[in-house]
Amino acid sequence: MNLPNPTPETVISLQDVDKYFGDFQALKKINLSVAKGERIVICGPSGSGKSTLIRCINRLEQHNSGKIIVDGNELTDQVKDIDAVRREVGMVFQNFNLFPHLTIVNNLMLAPRLVRNTSTEEARKQAMELLERVRIPEQANKYPSQLSGGQQQRVAIARALCMNPAIMLFDEPTSALDPEMINEVLEVMTDLAKEGMTMICVTHEMGFARSVADTVVFMDAGEIVERNTPEEFFNHPQQQRTQNFLKQILSH
């Protein structure tokens, strides 16, 4: 597959990030930097902190210590304009989280209209273009509940793209899907990768990781255990924990 190479410019950097839920430490001294155009796949057993990690990047969760810098802005309590940072970071959720009371096209138009004051016609035009891109323009005037899971997730990707984000976060985008719908979503994500989008994907789709990722990160118990290129990661895992994990998920 022809994928553009990442640039040397760093867009996200996490330094010694800790995150607690009450007494439970969800993230332990996380260090990670993401280059512009880099595609990172994060995997690991459930409860390992993968989702928490990416939710910290757009501050849906607040980290307790350490530094997170996104696109030159450090995320702190003082960041008044967290919404401005969030506009630069698109996010796709496991459960799609489409707004059920809005039609598909209105789901896509809402943020540009509210946040960017884009005119209705402009927003609609852009929304339709994005729906073409995720290959479901014909569903524009339906409500989310009328679409299949795979279609809803593609709409969710289009909705995130509406704000022209520099970075896309994917939080297990295919985990809630029936098996036959996983591919249509992965195809859209692969398209994005080809266009040079900076992506962080929490996923268990190892085929996707192999073919699309620049870097695979393995997390366990709130720590980054191992990070490597896909070839090295899958063929020569260094850590015992990584080997066990791979054995488990690849044996099925």
């Binding site: 969030r86 996010m91 459960n95």
Partner: peptide, 23 residues
């Protein structure tokens, strides 16, 4: 109202007040 919907709107950079009004 499912929490995820508010989060999705927040992730799009929609402000807290607007999230309440529109979602």
């Amino acid at each position: 109202v499912p929490k995820g919907l508010g989060e999705a709107a927040a992730a799009l950079g929609i402000s807290k007040v607007q999230r309440f009004i529109y979602i």
